[in-house]
Simulated scan of single mutants.
Amino acid sequence: MIRALYTAATGMKAQQLYLDNVSNNLANINTTGFKRSQVNFQDLLYDKKFIAGSESAQGFEIPSGIQLGGGVRPISTSKVFSQGNQQNTNRSLDIAVEGNGFFQISRPDGTIAYTRDGAFELNSKGEIVTAEGLPLTPSITIQDAKEISIGTDGTVFIKGSDGSIQNVGQIMLANFPNPAGLESMGRNMYAETIASGSPIVSAPGEQGTGEIHQYALENSNVETVTELVNLITAQRAYEINSRAIKASDEMLSTINNLS
């Protein structure tokens, strides 16, 4: 019964983490470019009473042994980079990536962060920046523009007040060998890690990156129904493990009361 107590406790801890993850997914259901996370579990070490294939006292081979597991543990949380639905906004600096790839953002410390959030603005210098004022990399400056046009390959054209058309730069995307290995930094940004591999920077539509679409934003890829089902599953699993602890406690109580 003592084994059951500790085994069920690992299950309750695992389901608590699972519930925390589901809650974060649901909390970000309206976050632009958000990618849902999933928790991966792993069973613990087994106590092997009898090993399958060993010889019994009568000299026969035991076809199956006795192995008692020690419970479960969370092994990782991974981002699911499936495509989110696109929402038309009619804003010229709203850009969505259809396919793989991340926008590159220059941070104050000089490092590069990566994001799927394409809600950009212009600062006082005419630079394309995020809602927090961090500039897009490579930097693109737009001044005296009546219209802004961004092609699917990232090329940015402006129409000046005199009616002339000018190419002011190209938005580049970064792709990674293992996007699930990126570090989530919050604020809709990710950081490169050893697990993610080095970024492969290219024009949209090249080297495995997707195309970009102007006047649109990518919604979160969280599916409400799926997360609600996961929520119920976590709650029921937590409840069942708590019942296992209660049953073990009652059995121990019965043994203690034997006269």
Rank of each mutant, 00 (worst) to 15 (best):
R3G: 09
L5K: 03
Y6R: 11
G11V: 07
K13C: 07
L17S: 08
Y18P: 03
D20E: 11
D20C: 08
S23R: 09
S23L: 07
N25S: 08
L26F: 04
T32G: 07
Q38R: 14
F41W: 02
Q42Y: 12
L44M: 14
K49G: 11
F50Q: 12
A52I: 09
S54V: 00
S54I: 00
E55Q: 15
Q58V: 13
F60Q: 13
I62D: 11
S64A: 13
G65L: 08
I66E: 09
Q67H: 11
G69Y: 05
G70Q: 12
P74G: 04
P74V: 11
I75C: 08
I75K: 13
S76Y: 02
S78G: 10
V80A: 06
V80M: 10
S82W: 02
S82M: 07
N88A: 13
R91V: 04
L93S: 00
D94M: 03
D94F: 00
I95D: 03
I95G: 00
A96G: 07
E98H: 08
G99A: 11
N100P: 06
G101L: 04
F102V: 03
F103E: 02
I105P: 00
G110F: 05
I112Y: 01
I112W: 01
A113H: 02
A113P: 01
Y114E: 08
T115L: 06
R116I: 00
D117C: 03
D117L: 01
G118A: 01
G118P: 03
G118R: 00
A119S: 14
F120N: 01
F120P: 00
F120A: 05
K125P: 10
G126N: 01
E127L: 15
I128C: 05
G133R: 02
G133W: 04
G133L: 10
L134P: 01
T137A: 14
T137Y: 12
P138L: 03
T141R: 10
I142D: 01
E147L: 10
S149H: 14
G151H: 07
G154P: 02
T155V: 12
K159G: 05
G160I: 02
G160P: 00
S161A: 14
S161L: 13
S161G: 10
D162S: 09
G163W: 06
Q166G: 04
G169P: 06
Q170D: 07
N178C: 05
P179Q: 05
G181P: 04
S184M: 08
M185N: 07
R187C: 04
N188Q: 11
Y190A: 10
A191V: 06
E192Y: 05
A195E: 14
I200Y: 10
V201Q: 05
S202F: 08
S202T: 11
P204I: 05
P204K: 11
E206I: 13
E206R: 13
E206S: 15
G208E: 00
G210K: 02
Q214S: 02
Y215A: 06
L217Q: 02
L217H: 01
E218N: 03
S220M: 02
T224I: 15
T226P: 01
L228W: 04
V229P: 03
L231E: 05
T233P: 00
R236T: 06
R236A: 06
A237R: 06
I240P: 08
A244M: 12
K246C: 08
E250N: 13
M251S: 11
N256E: 10
L258G: 04
S259L: 12
S259Q: 13
